[in-house]
Nucleic acid binder design. Structure first.
Length: 931
DNA sequence: GCAAGGTC
């Protein structure tokens, strides 16, 4: 069998179709991985890298004393499978193979991916022949010639890729751990560092600094308004910017009629049709449609998987010769673009446009199939249309403009006006994404005199550089060689998810700045794009076999050790700097009580706003738990309280804006305050004035203090505190009820828990106890169905019983055994005989007696007599001696309190029969035997 | 828990 391994499933399929020619390809799935077979050949696709490098075992603990962040520099690495199903399948097929061909993409990563496959094959079949097919496009001609000229894997090329992997892991992981530990950040808040992300972040930080340090300069622009044949014309002074106001004023004053046309130049300008899309130019164009880089890529990948467009990850801006442009045009005929396609076919430019970058891996992004608006979502359609129109534009003629430049003289002051008129729109007919603004000037003749309608000296300010938009940043990353077509947008996503940057255009957060500063000061290598450039040069030397992989990695290790020399010497300083710089990120504003900063605090899953004056000032505001989203400060502030608004952010959900935390705090607690019988509007106002907002604050105050701060009488103060304690208890029970309902009743559309609780409260059900006693009909009023109502009631009763028993003193461990034995209510304890309880639960009868005694006392009922273990065992033997009386009958007799010969002899057969279900005649027989 | 690079 000849096994062919491609880089991805879709390539595997296409390669199989091409090589099979007229033969039919059998597609089958093995563990969700597709294979394509024909003749004696089987083609299978990888998923890019199916293994990943990581440190050898022993380095998982970040805080290890021995395996410090620095020790990662010299740590050994291992390759571990990340796509187990594919790895297994490849190895299964390899065992049967007598020839294996690696057919991954023709670039460094592709060669490395190929080598990874090579190693997987070798591990299970050391003797099989393995060769390599190299092609730069998956077209019949390329693929056939590649398989006619098979070569060997280029291990030097793969080694270049491995070097990158090792260097990235070593630098990234060791620095990430070092910086995170220094700044005491763990879990979701780690501070990541990497060869690509750190320089990218540094650029955003740098740009923000430029904006902050920018000093605007004032300048003046001078223009005049004239007209001809009723057409207004604006002409600018040829000086452009006047930086000196006096000079501007002088020129303005000197601008007088007559205004004479001194020169008219007409010309033509061609406006080139755009080049084919590569990933970067595509992202830039999509961003004009309002799509973020990540979004645009996600949609493009979707379109690609559904066969509408070609592979979206490409660096190529030149159509390969093998691409059938006419065929694509034909495919697009008949649909929404029919007219546009027809026009392009009629007016085809002789050669399609081409961009500066040409690579061999994939063609530029182009449509591959016809789609309808209905088949795609709104955004998908927007992207598809963009790609179709771009493709059509690259085949369309250039646009041509007629340009006019006029010069005027206003009594010595020179002015100019330029105009443009679209002569032939060319590609602009079908690619409406960039606006072509015409500015048509009237026809002027040299020497002509014109009126001056107005002279205008306008004051302006120079502007700071703009923040990077996502698409602009991707362009700059590309220029600097940072990241790849597939990863650039992900790197930006990473910076956002690490909360280093936010917004679009991108702004750095305080954490982002603090980390960049720390790295800039102590490990500048990692914040500079230079590192990538050097790495690439070294990779080039490895490819050319002029340096070895180990040699380059050793050099990199030494460099990183020097970086750590500096870092470790300043560890404490780096840590405090980051912590101090980022504290502000959590600061909401001044405490209304003491004026110190209020800060958002996270403690496990709970979060709240606390005062930095703690413990002297105990002011705090509670926030919803972090399961609702992590609380962050946002730009907006509350004018009344001078506090920043708070937002809860959770992955996958829309952010929840809480607004001013104090306003929300006040509003959400007024209702609770009003639950106190003596609370009045006036009192609420007075309490608020003294920053007392919650019932629990009143409950926690000494009546004496309350008297002084709010100015109420002693009796009133005591009443208030007592009422607050009561209200607090009611609230506590209510919240318990709420949690309980939420747990038992599954959430469903159109049935909100808030509504259910509201209806319960209206029916007087304020806690679980009340719920356990409620009528099913009451529950149905709250919109619950029969089954759910029954379940909720049962659960509430169960919980109440359990609580009553625990309250009576039954230990939790025993309680579980009782429940398992079907003994659930306090009544069960009082009325079921002890032998029965003991036998059902396996608990010692003396212990059972102790528990029963506790429960009975708690309920004010008499405690039944004690039964010892010995008595019970003896009694059991006595009973079993009676002919026809077995184990099962003993258990049933326990139910009636009969556990030995004596108790049986005394029993009333009729009564015992009704309790145990044993026929009366049999009972008579037993008793008869005993007598 | 860490990078960057493939691919989905």
């Amino acid at each position: 069998m000849h096994l062919i391994i491609a880089e991805k499933n879709i390539s595997a399929n296409r390669i199989a179709q091409i090589l099979a020619g007229n033969e039919k390809v059998r597609a089958s799935k093995d563990g969700n991985v597709s294979t394509y077979s024909f003749d004696t050949k089987t083609v299978v696709g990888l998923k890019g890298h199916v293994v990943e490098v990581d440190f050898e075992p022993g380095y998982t603990n970040w805080r290890s004393e021995i395996h410090t962040p620095r020790s990662l520099i010299d740590a050994g690495t291992v390759k571990k499978p990340t796509e187990k199903k594919i790895v297994n399948l490849i190895q299964k097929l390899s065992k049967k193979a007598d020839l294996v061909t690696i057919a991954t993409d023709y670039d460094t990563e592709g060669e490395l991916i190929g080598k990874e496959a090579y190693e997987l094959v070798r591990a299970v079949n050391p003797g099989v022949r393995i060769n390599r097919a190299r092609f730069s496009a998956i077209t019949p001609a390329e693929i056939r010639s590649a398989f006619e000229n098979l070569t060997d894997l280029d291990f030097a090329l793969a080694a270049a890729g491995e070097t990158r992997q090792t260097v990235d892991l070593m630098w990234g992981a060791s620095l990430t751990r070092f910086i995170s530990l220094a700044a005491r950040r763990g879990g979701k808040n780690i501070l990541s560092v990497g060869r690509v992300q750190s320089p990218t972040l540094a650029m955003i930080v740098e740009r923000e600094r430029e904006i902050e340090n920018f000093v605007p300069q004032t300048y003046w622009m001078l223009s005049l308004a004239t007209e001809k044949d009723g057409m207004p014309v604006e002409a600018r002074h040829t000086r452009g910017r006047f930086t000196d106001h006096e000079e501007g004023l002088a020129a303005e004053a000197a601008t007088r009629e007559p205004l004479i046309v001194t020169d008219v130049k007409e010309g033509q300008k061609t406006d080139r049709a755009p080049a084919p899309f590569d990933t970067t130019t595509f992202i830039v164009a999509a961003s004009r449609l309002g799509l973020s880089a990540a979004n645009a890529m996600r949609i493009a990948e979707d379109l690609y998987m559904n066969g509408y467009i070609s592979y979206p990850r490409t660096d190529n801006t030149v159509y390969p010769k093998s691409l059938n442009l006419n065929g694509i045009l034909d495919t697009l005929r008949g649909g929404v673009f029919d007219k546009d396609v027809a026009w392009v076919q009629q007016h085809r430019r002789p050669v399609p446009t081409r961009g500066k970058k040409e690579s061999t891996d994939h063609p530029p992004i182009h449509p591959t199939g016809a789609a309808t608006r209905e088949a795609l979502g709104q955004d998908q359609w927007k992207v598809y249309e963009l790609i179709v129109r771009r493709f059509l534009a690259t085949l369309s003629p250039d646009a041509t403009w007629m340009t006019t430049k006029c010069l005027f003289d206003a009594s010595g002051e020179p002015y100019t006006a330029t105009g443009g008129r679209l002569l032939s729109p060319g590609w602009r007919r079908i690619y409406p994404y960039s606006e072509a603004k015409e500015n048509i000037l009237p026809v002027f003749a040299v020497g002509e005199r014109l009126p001056i309608k107005k002279v205008n000296l306008e004051e302006k300010q120079t502007q700071p550089p703009a923040r990077y938009s996502q698409s602009r940043l991707i362009q700059v990353m590309e220029e600097l060689g940072l990241g790849t077509k597939s990863t650039r947008h992900e790197v930006i996503g990473k910076l956002v998810s690490r909360r280093y940057v936010e917004g679009n255009p991108l702004r750095p957060t305080l954490v982002g700045r603090a980390v960049t500063d720390a790295l800039d000061n102590h490990a500048e290598t990692i914040t500079e794009p230079e590192m990538t450039r050097t790495l690439e040069e070294h990779m080039q030397l490895i490819k050319q076999r002029q340096r070895s992989r180990d040699d380059v990695i050793t050099e990199s290790r030494e460099m990183l050790h020097r970086v750590f020399d500096k870092l470790e010497a300043h560890e404490a300083e780096i840590g405090t700097e980051i912590m101090e710089q980022t504290a502000e990120e959590h600061t909401v504003g001044p405490c209304p009580v003491c004026g110190h900063d209020l800060r958002i605090r996270h403690l496990g899953i709970s979060q709240f706003i606390g005062c930095t004056g703690y413990p002297e000032c105990r002011f705090n505001i509670s926030l919803p738990g972090s399961t609702w989203g992590r609380a962050i400060r946002i730009e907006q502030t509350c004018e009344k309280h001078n506090l920043a608004h708070v937002r809860l952010i959770r992955k996958g959900s829309r952010p929840w804006d809480i607004g001013c935390p104090l306003c929300t705090h006040i509003a959400s607690n007024v209702e609770a305050l009003r639950m106190m019988p003596s609370m009045t509007d006036d009192l609420v106002q007075r309490l608020h004035k003294h920053h007392i907002y919650t019932v629990s604050e009143i409950a926690g105050t000494q009546p004496h203090d309350l008297m002084e701060t709010v100015g109420v009488g002693a009796g009133e103060a005591e009443t208030l505190v007592r009422e607050a304690e009561d209200a607090l208890e009611i609230l506590r029970r209510r919240s318990e009820l709420r949690k309980f309902v939420r747990k038992v009743v599954p959430p469903r559309k159109g049935r909100s828990h808030a509504k259910i609780i509201k209806s319960f409260l209206e029916e007087g059900i304020g806690d679980i106890q009340a719920l356990s006693r409620a009528e099913p009909a009451t529950l149905k009023k709250a919109g619950l169905g029969d089954a759910v109502a029954t379940e909720l009631l049962a659960a509430a009763r169960g919980l109440c019983n359990e609580r009553a028993l625990r309250e009576a003193g039954v230990p939790a461990v025993s309680l579980k055994k009782y429940q398992a034995g079907g003994v659930a209510t306090p009544d069960d304890f009082c009325y079921l005989p002890i032998p029965y309880l003991a036998s059902k639960t396996g608990i010692n009868p003396e212990t059972v007696h102790k528990h029963v005694d506790m429960v009975c006392r708690h309920l004010g009922r008499p405690t039944p007599a004690k039964v010892t273990k010995a008595a019970l065992e003896r009694g059991r033997k006595e009973l079993l001696e009676i002919p026809g009386l077995g184990e099962a009958t003993v258990e049933r007799l326990y139910l009636a309190g009969i556990y030995d010969a004596a108790t049986l002899r005394e029993a009333d057969p009729e009564k015992v029969s009704s309790i145990t279900g044993i026929p009366e005649t049999r009972l008579h027989d037993y008793i008869g035997y005993l007598k």
